[in-house]
Nucleic acid binder design. Structure first.
Lengths: 316, 316
DNA sequence: CAATCTTCATAACTCTATGTTATGTAGTGT
DNA sequence: ACACTACATAACATAGAGTTATGAAGATTG
């Protein structure tokens, strides 16, 4: 027999709050109203929900079982409320953005800073996530915009994606690194230096492995592993270590006199940086504004980077 | 803002069935009723749930999101229905029995063993409990059958009780006890022997106190207290201790050459052994079969015991 | 493009469940 | 034994959902 889901929520509230009066209050209902609803439910079920003659109410095993379902209903209701708030709040100047940590820290954050000075009333909520997580969050509505390197075959049909940079990696090092001033770097010269590995679960780590496999290095010396872009940059800047980073990230950091890159061409990944958003018309004008702005900034950045051959750029 | 969980279920049904009319039918609701509920919901939310001017209704992304929560609520409701059926249907092939420990161990277990050899497909779940607990468990549906000594005034109206043995206690001892072979035992003879007391929270303990008060013994020497029927029997068998036990229990144990009883009449309790079950129609045929079997076995046992005068029985 | 069919919206009436305040009953603690 | 707490019940009002009947609008077909 079908039970009204509100009644299951009532049972959950009573069990979780240890009594009818407290449970009713938690639900915003009056104590007599809840009491009567329970009595009618017990009469319909023909099975006791609470031990008789006990104060406060002591649930039976049967009640506990139904209360468990009531908790699930309550959780679903809470999620629905969040969805409502998101769809309303999304219309009112808040955008949630996520992306690969190094891209977010190295490239996207400065762009978003520019966006916010131009649109001060739009709030940006920024977080990290790789492609798979970003897609999930956009799909379930907890994210508005994702900026991640991704293969086009990995983009599901309900998500709108636009490539903003081609996949391009370089071997990064500190400014003034012994190899940095060489116009041509040979394999044997790289082998003697230690490497910094990105977080093992990141696509960049796989890029690193691919690069080193391509160069023929089976075992490489890792002097530092994991960490944020800032910590990687700090380690690079204070040692002769090498790592693999996206070209755009190094380019942006070069502006800060932070990093340089070696004059050696390494294989580019087939994942291109894309900006992702849901295809639905629920996209807010704030989200639309941000997407447009980010596309324009990356177009500009791409143009700047293309004006410089990789090798000639790093020879200054 | 909180959404009525029934409305979330409605959204799920509409989305899953491809239209309002089909969805309403799936929920057992009328089409106009669902249409109006939806209109009122959209008005309260202030966000469109369906693309305008489309037939059949085409959900928005917002609606899809809420429908997902509706599915969770529907699933929880289905599980709750299953729980209800289990608590009702659990009475179909499995019977839960509880009673006073000494009766259960000494008399009821052998009867249930006979029952199960006759009905091997009926599962018996056996446990202990005194009258008050047994009544509570039957009331709240966690027990099917209780076998306990009880006064008829203690039986609530919603429970069906049938007396299966009159209240009758004897002073039990080991076979070969010095007093066991006497045809008439006097008070002064009893006083010198130690006593075994049943668990203090048991009605039998109160019976023991009542017996000793009636005999005029204010302070009696307790050499062993509490424990199961097996442990009490073991202590009796290996010492000259005495205790008070129900006549039927001793009778059953006598068959095993385990115990004997003194030839002295002591006051009988006003609690008679009864078999209890809920009056509700939820009683299964398995429960009915067990109740009938237990009644018959106890009638037979009662007849056997009545064929023997108490004193002549113990004189063999 | 018009006619027909399908799907949903609206109206009017009825009924049920839930809201309220007031008060009684029963269990628990001191 | 008394006071307090927690729940049950009564009476009245209201809102939401049930119904049948019917209209409006979108989609399909000839």
């Amino acid at each position: 027999m079908k039970i009204d889901p509100r009644h299951l929520e009532i049972l959950a509230a009573i069990v979780d709050h240890g009594g009818l009066t407290e449970g009713a209050s938690a639900l915003g209902k009056s104590q007599p109203s809840v009491s009567r609803s329970l009595s009618m439910l017990e009469e319909r079920l023909g099975i006791a929900l609470f031990e008789p003659n006990r104060r406060p109410l002591q649930p039976t095993e049967f009640c506990h079982r139904l209360a468990e379902e009531g908790r699930k209903i309550r959780a679903a209701g809470a999620t629905a409320s969040t969805v409502v708030q998101q769809f309303k709040g999304g219309l009112r100047g808040a955008v949630r953005v996520a992306g690969s940590p190094f891209f977010i820290d190295g490239v996207v954050s400065p762009i978003i800073a520019s966006f916010q000075s131009e649109y001060p009333d739009i709030h940006i909520n920024q977080s990290y996530g790789y492609a798979r997580d970003v897609i999930d969050m956009i799909t379930n509505g907890t994210l508005d915009v994702g900026i991640v390197p991704i293969r086009s075959s990995e983009i599901p049909p309900h998500i709108e994606a636009r490539q903003i940079l081609p996949g391009r990696n370089v071997i990064a090092c500190r400014i003034g690194h012994p190899l940095a001033r060489k116009s041509s770097v040979r394999l044997s010269e790289i082998a003697q230096y230690p490497w910094i590995a990105p977080p093992p679960d990141s696509p960049l780590y796989h890029d690193l492995r691919a690069v080193l496999d391509g160069i023929g290095m089976r075992d490489f010396k890792v002097s530092f592993s994991g960490g944020s872009l800032a910590s990687v940059t700090a380690v690079l800047a204070s040692s002769d270590s090498l790592t693999v980073l996206p070209y755009s990230v190094v380019y942006m950091l070069r502006r800060q006199n932070a990093l340089s890159a070696l004059s050696i061409r390494i294989g580019d990944p087939d994942r291109h940086l894309c900006i992702l958003a849901a295809k639905s018309t629920a996209g807010s004008s704030a989200t639309d504004k941000l997407v447009k702005f980010v596309k324009a900034e990356f177009a500009s950045l791409n143009e700047l980077m293309q004006r410089r051959e990789q090798n000639s750029l790093w020879r200054s």
